[in-house]
Design a binder for these strands. Structure first.
Lengths: 237, 237
DNA sequence: GGAATAGTGTCTATGAGACATTATTCC
DNA sequence: GGAATAATGTCTCATAGACACTATTCC
């Protein structure tokens, strides 16, 4: 194991998803340094000294984008290390995936104009898509895949919502992330009756403009067994 | 994003599982360098120059353990980067997970006495467990978890087998990795009838000592929908 | 009243799990 | 014949999916 120790630059980058105005969106920061002038990038940076990678991801999220950003969920996504990722030096990026509830107002991240949430479908359709640094576009794509898969067999959809929420709120999370329409009746039964600990009733209800909806908070369960099956995409909302 | 570029040592390490004599086993190499004298470690090393991480993992597998090692499957597991992993320098390890069919004879890896397959249950019971370098024991644990989960919703169990194989062979893979006993009749139906493309009949059959068993090879399917559900463990074979 | 949403009821098809049955081989 | 394994058959129960129905609110 001829270890001729090789130096590589390591960064930690975060794909943070939220749902704004019914659209799945990812947090991006503007890069004003050469050679990435005018490009957008995932929030990130080198591992924080004396902190593990999870903590580093969290720190870069808050520091790069504004103090108010605290994800409801953060997990390691994948590490990217193709030798030609960066034109100058070998750069290895440990990517994280995070979910966060929508912010009540478009403020919060807004006081730092160089950071914003960008709707995901802009990437997929190609319209109005920002230039992204390195392979960050691919990382976002991988993050989207992982996010979609995770909603199938975990209770993480609730981390997109603030409590308390209605079952319809939760269903809309699934519909937005998966890009499908789900049958309200069957979805409710699956979530409320068939999966213990996914959500807990608060006893309250919220007027919605139509019939009042019962309110819930997330329960102790973390896994969905059996999973919530994802239908074929029909690209709806 | 005050990038005071930090140097970290990056390694690529591989958790390679196979099934030997009915026991799930992991490939380890003996370390004879200070300060790890007498310890065992996962095969690995620094990223290979001009090769991506996947390729580096594959190379280290073959180089560290013997030429004959070619995994039936290799995927990225997770990246470990706690600041106190290595007493001397900050070390970040990109871990891979691989599956491989059992070798026909205990030879192959054997001509390099410093590498061997170690039964997984030795770690879990604590008996006869080797001293492992750094946090490699935890990495193996995470790999085991991932492997068990992957068998639920992918067709990767076939990568533990050489073709052609019988349905009982395949069932024994599940039983060994999951540590449970599965109902032969229901397992067969699930694999052969309910999951298109998991296995394909060769038309041949193999005498087994009892009734002859039909032979199969793996089919084009990669995912199991719906998944093969894993029963509660009862730690059998 | 009409439209939209929340929540409940009901029916069907599918599949997992349990277990019986038949066939084949070795002792 | 007896034991063990391969393969098929049969039954039950849970649940996903489709859709009807009632209740509530705003227009």
């Amino acid at each position: 194991m001829t270890a001729h120790k090789q130096v590589a630059t390591v960064t930690v980058d975060v794909v943070l998803f939220t749902i704004r105005q019914g659209r799945l969106s990812v947090l991006l920061v503007a890069r004003d340094d050469e050679p990435f002038q005018g490009c957008w990038a995932l929030p990130g940076g080198p591992p924080v000294e004396a902190a593990d990678l999870d903590q580093s991801a969290h720190d870069h999220l808050e520091r790069g984008a504004g103090a108010a950003v605290s994800p409801g969920h953060l997990e390691q996504l994948r590490t990217y290390g193709a030798p030609d990722r960066d034109p100058s030096t070998r750069q290895i990026s440990v990517a994280y995936l995070g979910f966060m509830p929508d912010l009540p107002a478009p403020v919060a991240v807004g006081d730092r104009p160089s950071a914003r949430f960008w709707p995901i479908d802009d990437f997929l359709t190609g319209d109005d898509a920002p230039d992204l640094v390195l392979d960050h576009r691919r990382i976002i794509g991988d993050g989207l895949e992982r996010a979609r898969a995770k909603l199938e067999y975990t209770t993480l959809a609730t981390t997109f919502l603030e409590e308390p929420f209605t079952i319809s709120d939760l269903r809309r999370v699934y519909q937005t992330v998966w890009g499908v329409r789900l049958e309200p009746a069957n979805f409710r039964r699956k979530v409320v009756e068939r999966t213990d600990g996914f959500v807990e009733p608060t006893g309250e209800s919220r007027p919605t403009g139509r019939a009042p909806a019962l309110l819930y908070r997330s329960g102790p369960a973390t896994e969905l067994t059996p999973p919530l099956v994802r239908p074929e995409a029909d690209e709806d909302d």
